[in-house]
Design a protein around this nucleic acid. Sequence first.
DNA 1: CATTGTGAAGTGATTCACAGCA
DNA 2: TGCTGTGAATCACTTCACAATG
Lengths: 254, 254
Amino acid sequence: MTTQSQSPEPIATRDIPAATVARLPLYHRVLGQLLDTDVATVSSQELAELTGVTSAKVRKDLSHLGSYGVRGVGYDVAYLNYQISRGLGLTNDASVLIVGAGNLGRALASYAGFASRGFRVVGLLDADPGHVDRAVGDIRIAPVADLEAVAVATSPDIGVVATPADAAQDVCDRMVDAGITSILNFAPTVLTVPAHIEVRKVDLGLELQILAFHAQQRRGDAPSNGAGVPADVDVTGLDLRDAETGGSRRGVPA
Amino acid sequence: MTTQSQSPEPIATRDIPAATVARLPLYHRVLGQLLDTDVATVSSQELAELTGVTSAKVRKDLSHLGSYGVRGVGYDVAYLNYQISRGLGLTNDASVLIVGAGNLGRALASYAGFASRGFRVVGLLDADPGHVDRAVGDIRIAPVADLEAVAVATSPDIGVVATPADAAQDVCDRMVDAGITSILNFAPTVLTVPAHIEVRKVDLGLELQILAFHAQQRRGDAPSNGAGVPADVDVTGLDLRDAETGGSRRGVPA
DNA sequence: CATTGTGAAGTGATTCACAGCA
DNA sequence: TGCTGTGAATCACTTCACAATG
């Protein structure tokens, strides 16, 4: 399946810790910005400040890719950026198939950052005939029935599920059958997939609840220390579009 | 600042591990669905299958809230659901102010799951005069200049940054000045905030790159084991809307 | 001599495995 | 008997701290 366009040199990047992999794209982004401003080298300390992580973490992360730094100097921006690209397998573009052309699906399809980061949207599908054939940017919305055909024609590297929760599992199953092995799920539901398929989920409802919890905690806690340093309480979820699978509200005592 | 509407009984939920807090909303969601289908009790095993986590993790997570299970039986769905709501501080609604009414901001504002999960959108602002005064659902888009006024009038619990990267830090600063202490950032940039402010970020570009990396790894790896179990390779980021801060592409070798 | 790269220590989360209880 | 609640073991990630070095 997945007639991947990739094939070249295997590089030397096995065994990179998941936590590191999750940060590499962040370094990659700021290195790209530094490149634009003609900064030639960065230290782990500077990179740390720009990304909101600690310098020790930066050094350990980068050490998993190899020894690309220069002691006493730092890292060559362009070279490091290239090595991260290689480590992440971004040396050639990845194609993305989006199912669900509601607000979120359309937001994703028209997201300019896609192209600038090497991702190509090869399809945008929707079940609603009212959406079909409308254009989002230069992408025409096709009917979900075309999922298999589009997948065969374009061999997408990544499938994005941007449907309501009750359609998500079905769409996911069809993506898997069509040979897609990496799925990004925005629907507020848990997807069940074969073990060799990777699913990442982005769930807004969960994010908001996590934030709300910490806000509540802070209320009861002491204020806190300093002020002014970058903050990234890590990544997490986002969901979108209409109703949840059920329609329940929060529970009542037994 | 933040004239919080909350005040009541402090509950007994200090010291819940962050990893647990991140999963509680997930349990909460499926418990809500079980409630709708009139399921009276669940075992940790069943809850595990429905949420894609392990049963041991479920039990340990729930034990942080107290001993609400019944040995030999399981958990009362309604009661457990209520306890999680309390633990998460969801017993009263939280208000959300969204800045950025592009595709993503509008998707968020019209997201039905908001209301069903106890979140109220108290404002949707945009810098583009072309967007201002248009309505999204029953919310009217207001100019960003109103940020402070809206914040004073509504004391939002959470601020959502759904602007392009180059406007994000400014909007964030203004939210902080206006007394908002919890921020959800969708812009593909790192926000710098005082230490007592909590920022969570959702970054699509990063998600896609992480998926692309694992896809690449799988290509070189052996296929894998079984098939058919729920999968949630955890939550993470999503960004949106036009250009990144810089316009750079992937690097070239030095 | 500033900064990397990395062993070693520390911290937090997950998994195991079973005693305790309805 | 079946399932929870939890100590103990394990694993993963982070932080420390410093020797190596361009």
